[in-house]
Design a protein around this nucleic acid. Structure first.
Length: 699
DNA sequence: GATCCTCGAGTTCG
DNA sequence: CTCGAGGATC
């Protein structure tokens, strides 16, 4: 059995002793791994211990008890869940949505019992999962239930057993206190966003229906009739309340209760202890700030009267406990009505549908539009005009439509048909074989043209100040420009008839356009908007070809010999230059004096301080913008890319770093700050030292 | 042929 | 920021 050779002692008593020891050890290592995230043995050693335990249990099945680590999966599928009456009501919470509501709560309580003005508070994150109630007799997990209606829940013991961070026997830590004979703990079962995404990925791959959000996924997983299915689901647990404590030395405050649960080896929510409500409000804002990057969904914080006796005295209104309150975050997911589906035309002619919504507030901003990605997406999700739809905006993420609320259908909804003609120019629409996107085939489509001009003028390209989307659309609508070269022939008097343009603004724009004539070649190439050619590829081309004429005559074979350019991109480039329309465009640019020639890279590039090094930037740097930092690194011979990989040499970290920091840490990519970057450039000795250190740690 | 890496393109609100 | 696809590498 298994990849391990197991030697068991012959002596019966010795074997029994070893068996108990193994159970204890494995529970402890589970706790280190799943609760503390700090394992002290390797997975291999862990598997070995498990194998040894199984070997003993095979020999002595009569020794096996439900708290054995092997029993996390094992119970047969149930046909339905048994009902369980909770030993005490599992109360819900009243909500407040702002500081004023919170103050009002305390004032109400103060009238009932002035003692609340003397007490302190705990502030705990409110996890968006589902409540579970866990029963322990003499330290052994015997029963787990869902909340149900607060009086009666469902017995999901077998499923909860499969949750790795749930202690099957307490104390889990060797130095933990002895638990009372009977203990009931309240907690939250939940799923992290990353685990949820991975699970949905699996479900989709198997052709099963994915879950709408992590909470539904957690609930669906816990209510599986077959525990072996639950065992495959990445459920987690955090506890935050003692419901019943029968025994001596009962904790008297919420804070002590949390510390006690922690000592027993439960995963416990991270709480703050606050002397007053001002502190609680600060804690609320701390969690609000953490929320976007927190690994799992939070819907607010729970503020509790710390003194448990006082909490008990305050009692409940209906099903809401008086002595605690939920201070809710602005919702991240709401339902609204989808009024219409409209279509955008991109610079490359791609048609992208978006939803026009009844405006709703999500996460503190009003959302009116949401992208629908592509036409397949609308069909797959069966989104219809007039549907109630769930809109989600998590963190700083762009809002998107999760799906329709089928139950709210009235029959009035209309099925959406993808356009057969471009909504802007009316030209027929084309679907490229093997691609999802629909394209407008008209190269002269005004929407494509104005997006093209916008791109040409953008900061990364020709950097023309005052020429954004709106002005680009105006110029196209007034037929003042038919391609980007026409910009350079504009005179102030052409602009004055346009809405919003007077003498001064017209002059300024013309000046800004003229000033862009001497931008380097790579920016011009990028600005042309050749399919497949972004900033990086444009730079490669500008290094290889001295001007647009040379590039124009390049063959596909020649282009694809450049490192970083393959046959596909090479063909895109050749095709672009082959078009009559683009040849005329080039001629006009040349006549207007927009004809940069590549500045040959200095031959000493090899000796530059950052030669051969790749950097990634995350967060806000103290004295440089991201663009400046990028230019600074490139000026000194280094490369800057967007995503962290093993090939990244250094991650430059500023304030409020994003997910790249975590990626760098898992990959072992060294992180430095702006100051260190400057020293690397300015102080060769320091640089050598740093690089030598990096080589050593890479092993 | 498979896998990893990098680049391009599109996206929302204030 | 994220996804998809092109390109490089083994």
């Amino acid at each position: 059995m298994g990849p391990f050779t197991i030697q068991l002692p012959d002596d019966e008593a010795e074997l029994r002793r070893r068996y108990e020891e193994l159970k204890r050890l494995i529970h402890y290592h589970n706790y280190r791994y799943y609760v503390l995230n700090d394992p002290i043995i390797s997975d291999y050693e862990y598997d070995r211990l498990m194998a040894e335990l199984r070997a003993i249990e095979e020999k002595h099945p009569e020794w096996v008890t439900p708290d054995s680590p092997t029993q996390r999966v094992g119970a047969p599928p149930a046909s339905e869940f048994r009902k369980v009456r909770h030993p005490a009501p599992i109360l819900s919470l009243a909500n407040v949505f702002d500081d004023a509501g919170l103050d009002a709560w305390l004032q109400r309580l103060a009238r009932l019992d002035p003692a609340v003005l003397e007490t302190d508070f705990t502030v705990e994150p409110k996890i968006d999962g589902l409540t579970v109630v866990l029963h322990y007799r003499d330290g052994v997990f015997v029963l787990g239930a869902t909340r149900g209606d607060g009086e009666v829940g469902e017995d999901v013991t077998a499923n909860l057993r499969t949750v790795r961070s749930l202690p099957l026997r307490i104390p889990t830590r060797p130095d933990g206190p002895k638990p009372p004979p009977y203990l009931v703990v309240r907690g939250e079962a939940y799923m992290t966003r990353a685990d949820f995404e991975a699970l949905n990925e699996q479900l989709r791959a198997r052709g099963e229906r994915p879950f709408a959000n992590p909470r539904n996924a957690a609930a669906g997983s816990l209510r599986q009739l077959d525990p072996s299915v639950t065992a495959q689901r990445p459920l987690r647990l955090l506890t935050y309340q003692i419901v019943v404590y029968e025994g001596p030395d009962e904790p008297r405050t919420q804070w002590d209760a949390l510390r006690y649960l922690e000592a027993l080896g439960f995963p416990v929510v991270e709480a703050d202890l606050c002397p007053d409500l001002d502190c609680a409000k600060r804690a609320y804002r701390k969690w609000l700030q953490r929320r976007p990057t927190w690994p799992y969904d939070l819907d607010g914080v729970v503020i509790k009267i710390n003194d448990l006796e006082l909490q008990r005295r305050l009692g409940a209104v209906g099903k809401d406990a008086r002595g605690m309150i939920a201070y809710k975050f602005p919702a991240q997911e709401v339902t609204t009505t989808l009024r219409d589906i409209k279509v955008n035309v991109g610079r490359t002619g791609v048609l992208t549908p978006y939803a026009v919504l009844d405006p709703v507030e999500i996460g503190g901003v009003i959302v009116r539009k949401a992208t629908l990605h592509n036409f397949d997406y609308i069909r797959e999700k069966d989104i219809r005009i007039g549907d109630r739809v769930i809109v989600r905006r998590a963190g700083d993420v762009i809002p998107y439509i999760v799906g329709p609320v089928i139950a709210a259908r009235t029959g009035e909804e209309r099925i959406y048909e993808p356009p057969t003609h471009c909504p802007v120019c009316g030209a027929p629409v084309e679907k490229v074989e093997g691609e999802v996107a629909l394209y407008c085939i008209n190269a002269a489509c005004p929407a494509q043209l104005s997006r093209n001009i916008e791109h040409f003028a953008s900061r990364e390209a020709m950097d023309i100040e005052g020429l954004g989307r709106k002005v680009a659309e105006q110029l196209v609508a007034a037929k003042l420009v038919n391609d980007v070269a026409d910009l350079y022939y504009l005179k102030p008097e052409d602009l004055i008839p346009l809405e919003g343009f007077a003498e001064k603004k017209a002059h300024k724009l013309v000046e800004a356009i003229q000033a862009s004539k001497d931008r380097p070649l790579e920016r011009l190439i990028y600005g042309l908007g050749i399919r497949g050619v972004g900033a990086v590829t444009a730079r490669l081309l500008a290094e290889r070809y001295p001007d647009l004429d040379a590039l124009r005559h390049a063959t596909a074979e020649e282009l694809s010999s450049i490192e970083g350019i393959g046959p596909v991109t090479a063909q895109f480039i050749v095709d672009w230059f082959r078009r009559k329309q683009h040849q005329r465009l080039l001629e006009k640019l040349r006549r207007a004096g927009v004809w940069p020639r590549a500045s040959r890279p200095s031959p000493s590039a090899e000796d530059q301080p950052l030669a051969g090094l790749t950097f990634v930037i995350t967060g806000t740097l103290p004295t440089m913008t991201r663009e400046e930092a990028k230019a600074y690194i490139q000026r000194h011979g280094g490369r800057v890319t967007n995503s962290v990989s093993r090939k990244t040499d250094f991650l430059i970290v500023g304030a409020n770093p994003g997910s790249k920091l975590r990626k760098a840490q898992t990959l072992g990519v060294p992180t430095i700050d702006e100051e260190t970057l400057r020293r690397m450039v300015e102080d060769p000795g320091f640089r050598e030292q740093l690089l030598a250190q990096r080589r050593r740690t890479q092993g």
